[in-house]
Design a protein around this nucleic acid. Sequence first.
DNA 1: TTGAAAGCGCTAACAG
DNA 2: CTGTTAGCGCTTTCAA
Lengths: 335, 335
Amino acid sequence: MSSNRITSHDVAREAGVSQATVSRALREDSQISARTIARVREVADRLGYVPSSLGRSLSRRTTGQIAVVAELGNLTYPDTVPVMHDELALHGYRMLLISESADKELDHEILFDGSVDGVILTTTRLDSTLPARLHAKRVPFVFLNRTARGVVGDSVTADNAGGARAVAQLLLGEGHRNIAMLSGPTDMSSSVVRERAFTAALREAGIEPGHRPIIRRELVHESGRLGWGDLVSMRERPTAVFCGADAVAVGLLNAIAEQGDSVRRPAVVGFDNSPIAGWPVFALTTVDTHLRDMARLATQMLVERLDITTSGAEVAPRKVVVPTTLTLRSSHVGG
Amino acid sequence: MSSNRITSHDVAREAGVSQATVSRALREDSQISARTIARVREVADRLGYVPSSLGRSLSRRTTGQIAVVAELGNLTYPDTVPVMHDELALHGYRMLLISESADKELDHEILFDGSVDGVILTTTRLDSTLPARLHAKRVPFVFLNRTARGVVGDSVTADNAGGARAVAQLLLGEGHRNIAMLSGPTDMSSSVVRERAFTAALREAGIEPGHRPIIRRELVHESGRLGWGDLVSMRERPTAVFCGADAVAVGLLNAIAEQGDSVRRPAVVGFDNSPIAGWPVFALTTVDTHLRDMARLATQMLVERLDITTSGAEVAPRKVVVPTTLTLRSSHVGG
DNA sequence: TTGAAAGCGCTAACAG
DNA sequence: CTGTTAGCGCTTTCAA
């Protein structure tokens, strides 16, 4: 039935002050007398008053909320989301986690209906219209490890090209001459860059097209399993495989494990250095993208952007590229 | 500078109707003439008008938003969150994902400040004050695979006791007589029930206390690794280990793998049947709690509860217990 | 079928 | 230091 919500009016009446005074006292806003503050506080506590974020947001024209668009299936983000959450809290913002699956694009209505002050994009595809729509609606945003076609915006990206080149050199140095890549979709900026740099490095080393087959799928566990099926059916089976993400590499290693010890395992290298890569059963050699650092950086950039926007100033978008680190374990030696 | 937001007033002016008519037309609310609806729609689209959820929520006294309190470290929830999201969407609700870490309890302010209509609790500890506070503030909620001490509320739980008993029988049937348990914290309802039922089953089978050691830690990967350290230091090393969650079992198997093939591996059984349990490298025998079904059920219960609350009726809390299924793979035979 | 007006709970001038 | 008064953008009577 009736909404039992306690409002600032209730507190005001009970404390014998005006509603505005309650509002101020609870925010320690202007110079309200210590006595009044104490009294209002006491009454508010006693009544269990919690200010309505709806009323506040509507009145202030700012919500203090930031949306993080993340993909649940992605193994890397249980790591990064807490970082963003804490960094946002540090600056007085609340995090709204928007979960997105690769298959179905969300309507994203919540990003446009005034529920949030800004957005961190971690899943955006190259041809997504989302960034442009955010731009048109003046919703500040930042890309984390992604970019979109023809869209200007703050971004933090790993040095995907450098990482991929390092992998190429590692594998070539180990003597491999037939190296496959289990790459990601062509509309995923990070994956495209990795693939391109990797291919280029192999080409420069004189590896022929037939000896650098590329298979593209979503960068998920299942793709690694499917990839193994593709590899074994090749006439000359590659001796090494570069996976566009750790999730794929792990799927591949799982598929191989399923065959038992009979098969000769190719060298396998991943990308991301997600926690699972370090699990002894995989001991995955991979490229550390320092995602937690990237997440913190992206968050800070968005917060700064929010300040800039509020102040009415104009500052050009900033693009930060974070160096990667090759992380050697044992999967890059075949078995 | 100024907030460029387009409001229903802007649309009204442009369409030559009143603001109220815009509101109605866009909701196809009362009997607005088809012509007016069409015109308003056209103008709204052209102007890129998106209704403010703040204004709507404040006016309606209901937000259409449901918070899901989940733990990011938990391996099971990338599976369940999409289920809840879709089920909520089906009923016209939006999901707000609140990430919680085991270490630091969030302030949960957002659950009380009018931002949401209801809450799904998936991480609550036995002695958490959260459920009681929600109850006091009349915020409808439902427990998913959890309960709290002395709190009445709708809940969906797995038959944790039945599952644990099934594991005991399996291990006893395999001839084990010295069975350890890597259990969870004593303030986690699901874990407490599993441990209690398991211990009882072993006791009934005449297994002596010294042959059913229990080690309690958070139900996370790291605990499995630490647990292996504890096990190897025992005078009579257990031949089988029951883990309170798949995450622990996987950590344990990882620790064992680290030692190489030299060690005799104990039988290992997990709980949850999270996707990782099915990975060939682990082939984890475990108890399927059918978490996706549970998640759907919990969501439906909350939606019903919301309807009940709105209608002003009184319906006693419902407790649903979902049967578990023992899922045999190969980890329950030692090596 | 539509408009005018009140109000959801808060913040923010403006007085005093 | 505190009260009064306008809104923030929407929904919802009540009239017309």
